[in-house]
Design a protein around this nucleic acid. Structure first.
Lengths: 334, 334
DNA sequence: CTGAAAGCGCTTACAG
DNA sequence: CTGAAAGCGCTTACAG
């Protein structure tokens, strides 16, 4: 009940009859310490309810125990549960490894903004970035020796470590299913094909055509921007140009829902006249009518993998970028 | 280009011709320092590209510059964009005030778990909690003097500071609209009424009945659990018991969508036979057909307010809990 | 395997 | 208004 000051090494050293250096060694798992002394220290730690003072450790050792998760303002953080899910996966794994997650939601474009300063100031032991539009800052930091992991794929060929969803595989699986169920004219509504993810989903689509010995008509490939409205608009264009289009792979669920609205507005039915597949397995895909067939990714696992890559780097272990598998979820729309 | 060691007070003191104590005073905005010396220090700071070492500051001052945002695992973090949005609002305001956000996603139930230890260890300057099921831990921490803000309402009467959505006002506005448009038999599908938010929305509903000089039939009040399925099931019950029910206020959008599915499955139409209003203004509310009328809250503003309350506490300024306004958004379903 | 000692980079009474 | 000095609580060569 009494509010005594928290114990420091000094108190433990005294209680255990050893030096502070030995206390430090025990607490940092230095193997060389005599077992009996180790036991004595552990006992004192237990009895006194000792807790490490992170700032002191950080100052003396140079390690902060903090990992930054940097999220670009531009991402649709405000309506997309994706990043929250990834972040919770990251946070969980980091915590298990006694690391804390420092969240930075800002504009990451600047190589010289507050985020850059913060990260260059070594206030964290590493940084996990989310899908980037530009990677100048990341390269700069990596060059300075800051351990980095990217969630999503880097733009250019690079030796940066990353974890990403199998976007190609998702595009492939969706398109393959549509072709296999007998659709002859399969269109695609892409997302932002400037991003790696957007591009790779399109590549998967093209690959299926290739395997069927066909080449998709260019006007079957429409570019959207991941919004409901763009799905709707692009689908209207498709129906106008190709009255016989019988399937569409929309590169996210929101566009797929927009496409369905356009198809039904045109007096056609899903999936009988036009089959539709989305991407994300969002909540809406389950609540829409017809329920949406879609590509599911394990988003939590993506975050966990990102954290694992970071921890491996910190430990100097071998690190390898990872592509996380996706799964085709068939519901009513295809 | 050369990788010189980062400058410390020592270098600045030398360059500016003052003591390290003076450097510290200038950097901490101590007003007593002679203007010329202040200028000299600022110049040296600028030229040398000085950046504060947070761990050293933390060790010497006791302030870490870190604020924890603690999110209970139990919250449906994995599908609800709500908390991500709140968090980004918090993070933005904290950053502007040179504070960093430490994210902790864990089970918060235990008064003695890792989170408790971390927060008791004073590794952060304050903690912002999200809607809690139990608040024993929070009370304990507050008693120890840790600045605390709760996002959502505390369970019991208390002097804890909090920010919350006007849940009562939202329930009131939704129900009032339904009554005013002529509906005679307005039902409600509640969320978890163990939580303050769930309870307050129901209170708003009851208040409207009261103002109309009526008392709602108890069987018009059905308890859901915020899931699509529960909305569907409870609506089926309502339609069975009350074939003439002509409106329903569902306490979130997901349940509202479930209710609409049940209404249409019963061969009735929305809003002509049964009007429906949800709560959240989620993405689904715009993409559903009919589009959902709902209660919108400014979630980002909620997060910003939470951060502001925290900052006021840290600065020793007067603090007052806040209720954030909501807005009725009318679309097609009511 | 272990301890004494210096040091990490700041802050803050204290004395002037 | 300012400086010298002690101190925050750890870690880590160094010497033994």
């Amino acid at each position: 009940m009494s509010a005594k000051a928290r114990p420091t090494y000094s108190a433990i050293a005294k209680a255990a009859g050893v030096s502070e250096a030995t206390v430090s060694r025990v607490l940092n798992n230095d193997e060389r310490v005599n077992p009996e002394r180790t036991a004595a220290v552990m006992k004192a730690v237990e009895e006194l309810g000792y807790r490490r003072h992170r700032a002191a450790t950080a100052l003396a050792s140079g390690r902060t125990g903090l990992i930054a998760v940097v999220i670009d303002d531009d991402l649709s953080v405000f309506s997309d549960p994706f990043w929250g899910t990834v972040t919770s996966g990251i946070s969980r794994v980091l915590m298990e490894n006694h690391l804390q997650t420092v969240l930075m939601v800002t504009s990451v474009n600047s190589v010289d903004g507050p985020v850059a300063h913060y990260l260059e100031g070594r206030e964290v032991d590493g940084a996990i970035f989310f899908q980037l539009h530009k990677d100048a800052l990341v390269r700069k930091l990596a060059k300075q020796g800051l351990p980095i992991v990217i969630t999503g794929s880097p733009h250019t060929d690079t030796d940066l470590y990353f974890v990403d969803t199998d976007n190609f595989g998702g595009g492939y699986a969706a398109t393959k299913h549509l072709m296999s169920r007998g659709c002859k004219k399969v269109a695609i509504i892409t997302g932002d094909i400037e991003t790696t993810a957007g591009h790779q989903r399109l590549d998967g689509y093209n690959q299926v055509y290739r395997e069927f010995g066909r080449v998709p008509n260019k006007s079957l490939i429409r570019q959207g921007d991941y919004s409901y409205e763009s799905g709707q608009v692009q689908m209207e264009h498709l129906l106008a140009e190709h009255p016989d289009v019988d399937a569409v792979f929309a590169c996210n669920d929101l566009m797929a829902l927009g496409a369905i609205a356009a198809i039904e507005a045109a007096g056609k039915s899903v999936p009988d006249d036009v089959a539709v597949i989305g991407f994300d397995d969002s909540v809406s895909s389950r609540t829409s009518r017809p329920q949406l067939s879609t590509i599911r990714q394990d988003i939590t696992a993506l975050g966990e993998a990102a954290a694992e890559l970071m921890i491996a780097q910190l430990n100097g272990e071998p690190v390898e970028s990872r592509i996380m598998p996706v799964e085709l979820v068939l519901r009513e729309s295809a």
